[in-house]
Write a protein that binds this DNA or RNA. Sequence first.
RNA 1: GGCGAGGUAGCAAAGUGGUAAUGCACUGGUCUGCAAAACCGGUAUGCGCGGGUUCAAUUCCCGCCCUCGCCUCCA
Length: 470
Amino acid sequence: MALTLHDTLTRQSRTIQPLDGRTLRFYCCGPTVYGPAHIGNFRTFVAQDVFRRVVEMGGLPTLHVRNLTDVDDKTIRDSQKAGQSLGDFTRFWTEKFHADCAALNLLPPHVEPSAVAHIPHQIRMIETLIQRGHAYASADGSVYFKVASYPDYGRLSHLEDRELKLGASTTAGAMDSDEYSKDSLADFALWKARRPEDGPNHWPSPWGDGRPGWHLECSAMSLEYLGEDFDVHSGGIDLIFPHHENEIAQSCCSTHGKFAHHWFHVTHLMVDGGKMSKSLGNLYTLEDLQKRGYHPAEVRYVLISGHYRAPLNFTFHSLDAARQALQKLARFDKALLERGCAASPARGDLAPGPFADAWKTLTDDLNVPGALGAVFGAINRTKPAALTEAEVLACHRGLHFMLEALGLRLPPILDEAAVEVPAEIATLAEQRWNAKQSKDWAAADALRKELDALGWIIKDGKDGYQVMPK
RNA sequence: GGCGAGGUAGCAAAGUGGUAAUGCACUGGUCUGCAAAACCGGUAUGCGCGGGUUCAAUUCCCGCCCUCGCCUCCA
């Protein structure tokens, strides 16, 4: 397999090859656990999950690290507001996050380090940066990274002329009192001195009590679990600047390595053609969608249905379309099962087979929409009833190979799903069936119409009928 | 202003220097008492606009318009 992936730094698609020749090591910026993640956050995590699955299905083991940001301005502020300890507060939201991830069929990372549990690592990194002349402590006990000491700063985001913009933000009044203690406005905090409003949330350091700056945790924890050099670093497109730029500066100035060798950024999700925001009321969580009757698998399908580097517009219509598309896949799978396939093929037996085109497309910069198109194309060309036994088996294994690579789980076929039918509805349906049996078409149609008005549909079979909500 | 992404059928979304995958929706047919489901078909002479290169461009080049994102802590 030759998997290619676009690299933000070089702006080119590059072949994925593990630095150590054995395992692909990659780091993803995880959630800040101070509230429920929304589907925009999950677009990024799902895209990363597809990447990992494609790498693994291609035969390359991964070492996947995704952190939890459980100490920062927002977690501290909101835990205090909730009257909870920081630990209790972030644990609650971490568990919620994990539940959502499981529902979306995300593979759990191999390591999920907590920022608050790695403060000593972060302090050590700051000490090294100070020793090497890349950081300095200010009078109030904060420590800043000296951007001017790192000539490569800005390479990832290609924002060369920082000073112009910094001047602009100053005149816009963005400067707060903290920033006066910096040598340069471009410098960013590695350690933030304790403030009264932080409550009990402060830790000792050589520069006094305080807490680590946000950017530092990823540098410290990726070093701890992946080393000075590792393969891929990923996050939402908004993290390119300043977060990843800052990580590069911290890591490259405190180690002898080159940090991440490949940058994988996922474009934002849009809702109803625009940006998601609380004020517009279009910021959905997985739970919001589940309450509206959508299954997480349908949400996942929507989130992968656009290429990760293109804007994707999320709508309820797209969720409905996802439901039908998954049904189509499930029906095809069922047709294969009826030809005698095992329900769950062993993962080791999976191979692209008749879906080789789809797989090839998927390995070309994770072209999920193209791959899905190829899957359906293959399905449309295949008549399960006309296949030989060997072909049926290969087809089934190929289908499940692709489903596994995309992380799609087939839903039950809707016709067969158990539905709770209220007694009054059941009675009307029974009356209609009886009318139909006695060929009283007028009465049967009237009852069908009545049920329709109540929101129920009758589906007749040969020997019986089914009542379904509309 | 700088940097980046994108503008393809009603909606969504791939793709290619030689005349446009796929999903949804819509629609014709088979089936059905009628439906539904399923299955078999159909649906962009067109790919933001204007030039240019070429035997040939939606695909390359130039200009323009529009949308979205980032520009100090937002996936």
